[in-house]
Write a protein that binds this DNA or RNA. Structure first.
Lengths: 261, 261
DNA sequence: CGTCCCCTTGAATGAAGTCAATACGCGTGG
DNA sequence: CCACGCGTATTGACTTCATTCAAGGGGACG
């Protein structure tokens, strides 16, 4: 069930069979399913459990007093998110489901036990946290310095590469379960502007986007348009992190990522 | 020397005298000073040391191919930053000095030893990392959903509250060592727009800003203008974090924060 | 006293937003 | 099978906020 979880983490640091088993046991704990538009965590509430996202797309968002809202992160299948949520007292944002989402709810104590007994998992979680922060910085840059077309093409490049790294692309296509309104809430644009940019991208044969499937017809041109540099995703290497003394491996194939340029 | 560092961390979780001493010893290791405009870490380079920021203002920034750049974070005195930099292979952004900055350079091994011997310090660092991430999300929202005046007033509210929490405000004034150009690079606006907003704020008696000193004349109105809600800064409580068994305290006064509304 | 950096202000331009009407796609129920 | 309804996408006309271009001013410093 949580193969994807183990696989994701083992991208960052080699996990032992013991680590993998511990993860599996944990994720079988309490499984919860959400439907599109369901809110998984609410801003302002104290976090009650740790959610390990096993499958599906979700997003963080912040809602403003004036009714506008910003999508601040998008979780694609394989992302974990919020493992450290207990360090803070209350949620400062909400998390909602974009597709149907499977979540393993872990109690605080079970989680603490896990990371104290499995330092490599803790390490991998650090890694994931830092990559998430790097993505957040890039989004800040995207919103602050790029125009409408650049923002949207950047978002597409990023999502494609992230999906590619977890094996969810096929050829130059990938799922994209976002409405134009949601693309707008992610990029700080109105629906109308998003629509015009998309029309333009289609006209110029940069992309095709139909029935929630994105096809990138000219990746080079799209990257150029976005000034996209994937370095901030920190993919493409398996052995980062703190020193690790040898131990038996999980036997999982290490992801092959063809994402660097 | 690193009183401020100890004080900052003890906001998050109580530190023992041993913890505090270890921090002191560490920060006396290699001290380095930077002048305004110096670049402390360069995007693209592998990190060589861990920088503990002892004093001064600095900022992260990302530079784009087209010459534009975005300031993605501002470090005020008391912030630590980049303690976890080794987990990633290369810097995905640069860090530069805004004022003169004092930095303690810690070797990777000394740092690893520190956190393994002093779990509470590790915990406090987690906390700091997560608050930094929360700020980054708020900045994403700021850039995506707020107009020029809202963005700038939000930035001012945030900086004031952060400075207040480390005792660097006096009355309703605080230092603000940013040029209008730099305010623009953090809020995604041009100098000209920043200037016009500031003029307007002065005319309407919201703020005064002169000689790098910001005075907030009407905090309530400024917060309103910004739709500022300080919850994301997660101030105002000392005991978050994972369970902690009792140990002798540092004797440092716990910061009193009057920042909640 | 001149230079550099930063701030200020006006006028023209432009990118994205707003408003509003229409079209499409898909599931439901008659 | 078709009509209806709802959410989503599309398009045009107009407006507005912020940018761009350009010129000038002030203060610090050598």
């Amino acid at each position: 069930m949580s193969i994807r979880l183990v696989r994701k983490l083992s991208q960052f640091t080699p996990l032992s069979n013991g680590d993998a088993q511990a993860l599996n046991r944990l994720s079988e704990a309490r499984l919860r399913l959400y439907q599109p538009r369901d809110t998984i965590m609410h801003e302002g509430e104290p976090p009650k459990v740790i959610n390990l996202y096993l499958d599906g797309w979700a997003y963080r968002h912040k809602d403003l007093a004036n009714g506008k809202r910003q999508i601040t992160s998008i979780f694609v299948p394989g992302d974990l998110c919020d493992v450290n949520v207990f360090v803070l007292d209350r949620m400062d944002h909400s998390v909602s489901a974009l597709t149907s989402v499977a979540v393993a709810e872990i109690s605080r104590s079970a989680f603490e036990q896990l990371i104290s007994e499995h330092p490599r998992i803790a390490q991998a979680l650090w890694w994931e946290t830092l990559v998430t922060a790097a993505i957040q910085r890039e989004w800040t840059t995207n919103l602050g310095q790029r125009d409408a077309a650049e923002r949207i093409s950047h978002l597409f490049c990023e999502l494609f590469v992230r999906l590619q790294s977890v094996g969810l692309t096929s050829g130059n296509s990938c799922p994209l379960p976002l409405s134009q309104a949601e693309i707008g809430e992610t990029t700080g644009l109105t629906i109308v502007s998003v629509n015009r940019v998309l029309q333009d991208f289609r006209r110029t044969k940069l992309i095709a986007l139909k029935r929630k499937t994105l096809t990138i017809l000219d990746f080079e041109a799209l990257k150029q348009r976005a000034m996209f540099n994937p370095n901030y995703l920190h993919l493409g290497r398996t052995d980062h992190a703190f020193s690790t003394e040898g131990e038996e491996s999980t036997g999982l194939p290490s992801q092959d990522e063809e994402t660097d340029d």
